[in-house]
Structure formats: structure tokens, C-alpha cells
């Protein structure tokens, strides 16, 4: 990247290399929205060049050379755009990007990840999105490429409410839900109390679907792809929440995980070594069939049914002690769950 000498000196504040670019406010015309930008990159030349190319009338830019100070600044200030180097002292840029993205303020910030193209050959085309990041910039890059990527990243995070595409309350609702997607449990997502019954769930889900189902927004697919993606992400999560809560065994299992471990989503464990092991214990196909059923019911949170299925498996192989042990462990778990209500 071509380096231009940035104006002003860079005051050294401890570890933090902080640079403030003065933004003169236009007096006559209404000022364009100024956004706060954060650049974290250990290579001084790259850092300075990137900061210098961000238009001063649009961005107030802060630069950092390591991950910790950048993250501190991010946590304490409102940041709209983050530009991260691939390798930062203290933390990989990819990890920092994820950390920022998953934080409370994370959903609204546009993140651009930079990397020398030789390091990430699969990113060579520059169109691959890194985890948590909205856009990727392969270095070296021309200034106009940098700005194009910045715009791409920003547009992905543009609040829907700022675009005149949907009725204001709906747009704000989309922004709110999308922003909080990783922080809301199923009940909060649907805005329902924990004792909501199946009928209340269905009515609420239908109301939400009329507003947020992607089929209601097909026009946006080509016109505003990032809004379309947000709506899809929100709707998929809403329907996941509804389908779990409306099914009693899965709801029990979800409630348990939520209460005990603060798990916001119900995740089905992948077919694990345990499952293969239990199946290997069987000598007959009949027993195997019932063990599979038992495993499936356990994955759905139905321990009672799982115990019954395991007992049926055992009926075909009454002398199989190992299977007997599995059954007693299911029953033990069931008694714990029942005791805990």
C-alpha cells in the first residue's frame, strides 16, 4: 500500500498509540454523520496509511497497535467501524473480531479484517468473509479498494431503521432483534413469559411471522441484501425458538439447559462416540433398533421415553450387563431432573 504522511504527530500514551484526526465540521450544509473508526494494526506504515485514507469528514479515527488497547477502547466508546490486522500483539485479529462481534455492542459495528494475501491463499479473491468480520481486505491494496471494502462492511451493519425501506417500528424491531440475537433466550426473543402455553406461543409466532417472515420481504432480496439477510437470520431464530418451546420434551430440555448453564439455545449434540459405543454394545438388530430410539429420545430431552426404549432393548438381550448400566444411568438422570422440577 502506498504510504502518505498523515498529518499531526502521534502522541505515545503508554502502550497505546493514539492518534486523533481532527474533523472540521461543515458550517453550512447539514454535516454528514460522523462515524467513529478504530484501526488496530502492529505495522506502523500500514496503520498510518489506513487511517490517512479514511475520509476525515466522515470518520473520526483512532489507531492502536495491539489487541488489548483496541478492545479496551472498543468497550468504552461507541465504535461504528473496526479495521483489524490479521496478527496483533496479544491476540489474533480473527479472535479479536469474534470477541468484538459477540460483545453487547457487537452487532452494530462493521468489522473489516486485513491480511497479507500470501498468508491466506483462500482469501486471495477478497470476497470471503472472515468469522465475525463483514469484509476482508487482502494486502497490499490500493486506497480505492480499501474504501470499497469499508463501504461494503458499513452497509452490512447499517441499521434498517436508517433506510427508508420498511415502516419505522418494524425496521427498529428488526434492528433490535438482530442486535440482540445472541443475547436473548427463546422466551425473551418471542417476548413471552416462561409459562406461556402452546396457544399463546402459536398466536405470538403467527403475529411475528406476518411481520418478519422472509416471504413478506421478497422485494428486499435484490434491493437491500444485507437487510434481507438480517430478516432471514432473525426469522430463523424466532422459528427455532417457537418449534422448541411448542414441543414439551424439547422445552423441558431447553429449560434445564437455560436454568443450569445459561444456555440460550437448544443444541442437539452431534452423533457422538457415546452413541456409536452404545450401539456397539448390542448383539442383536432388535436391541440396536431400540437403543437408537432411546438415543434419539435422549437427544430430544425425553428421558422417560429414552428409558422405556432402553428397557425394550434390554428385553432382547437380558444378560447384556453393559446395556443394563446404560439404563440405570438414564434412570438416575431422570430422577435428578424430576427432583429439580
Amino acid at each position: 500500500m502506498e504510504q502518505k504522511g498523515p498529518s499531526g504527530t502521534v502522541p505515545q500514551l503508554g502502550r497505546i498509540a493514539l492518534k486523533r484526526v481532527a474533523v472540521p465540521r461543515a458550517q453550512a450544509a447539514p454535516p454528514p454523520p460522523t462515524r467513529n473508526a478504530l484501526v488496530a494494526e502492529p505495522d506502523k506504515a500500514v496503520r498510518k496509511a489506513v487511517a490517512a485514507h479514511l475520509p476525515r469528514d466522515r470518520f473520526q479515527t483512532w489507531t492502536f497497535e495491539d489487541a488489548d488497547s483496541a478492545y479496551d477502547h472498543f468497550g468504552q466508546n461507541g465504535v461504528d467501524l473496526v479495521i483489524l490486522g490479521r496478527e496483533l500483539p496479544g491476540m489474533a485479529g480473527t479472535v479479536l473480531a469474534q470477541l468484538m462481534r459477540n460483545s453487547r455492542k457487537g452487532s452494530a459495528v462493521a468489522i473489516l479484517l486485513m491480511s497479507p494475501s500470501y498468508r491466506d491463499p483462500y482469501l486471495g479473491a477478497g470476497d470471503c468473509n472472515a468469522f465475525g468480520a463483514d469484509a476482508f481486505l487482502a494486502l497490499p491494496a490500493a486506497p480505492d479498494v480499501l474504501l470499497a471494502r469499508v463501504e461494503a462492511a458499513l452497509s452490512k451493519r447499517e441499521p434498517v431503521a436508517r433506510l427508508d425501506l420498511l415502516p419505522k417500528p418494524l425496521a427498529e424491531e428488526i434492528d433490535r432483534l438482530y442486535g440482540d440475537l445472541e443475547h436473548l433466550n427463546y422466551y425473551d426473543l418471542l417476548a413471552l413469559p416462561p409459562d406461556a402455553d402452546a396457544d399463546a406461543l402459536q398466536r405470538r409466532f403467527h403475529e411475528l411471522s406476518l411481520q418478519l417472515h422472509p416471504d413478506r420481504h421478497t422485494r428486499l432480496r435484490g434491493r437491500a441484501p444485507h437487510v434481507w439477510e438480517k430478516i432471514n437470520a432473525v426469522y430463523k431464530r424466532l422459528s427455532e425458538a417457537y418449534k422448541v418451546l411448542v414441543d414439551p420434551p424439547r422445552r423441558r430440555s431447553y429449560n434445564l439447559g437455560l436454568r443450569r448453564r445459561g444456555k440460550l439455545r437448544l443444541e442437539k449434540d452431534p452423533f457422538s462416540a457415546r452413541e456409536d459405543r452404545e450401539l456397539a454394545l448390542c448383539e442383536t438388530d432388535d436391541a440396536r433398533r431400540h437403543v437408537l430410539e432411546s438415543l434419539e429420545l435422549r437427544s430430544l430431552g425425553d428421558l422417560e421415553g429414552a428409558g422405556e426404549a432402553m428397557a425394550r432393548a434390554l428385553a432382547f438381550e437380558p444378560d447384556n450387563e453393559e446395556l443394563g448400566l446404560v439404563l440405570s444411568s438414564i434412570r438416575k438422570l431422570l430422577s435428578i431432573v424430576e427432583r429439580d422440577g
Binding site: P214, K236, Y242, P270, F271, E275, D276, L279, E296
Partner: peptide
Amino acid sequence: QTVSGYFDVLIPRNASIPCEQTRV
């Protein structure tokens, strides 16, 4: 398909669409 030839269900039938499931 699992290593031992069994069927590991990612998205069960009757799941409402659109939907997605992530697996590692």
C-alpha cells in the same frame, strides 16, 4: 452418515422452513 454407517439427523422432519443447523 456417521463413521459406522448410521444416520445422524441434523434437521428433523417437520422442522419449519427456512431453518438451519450448524455442526462441527
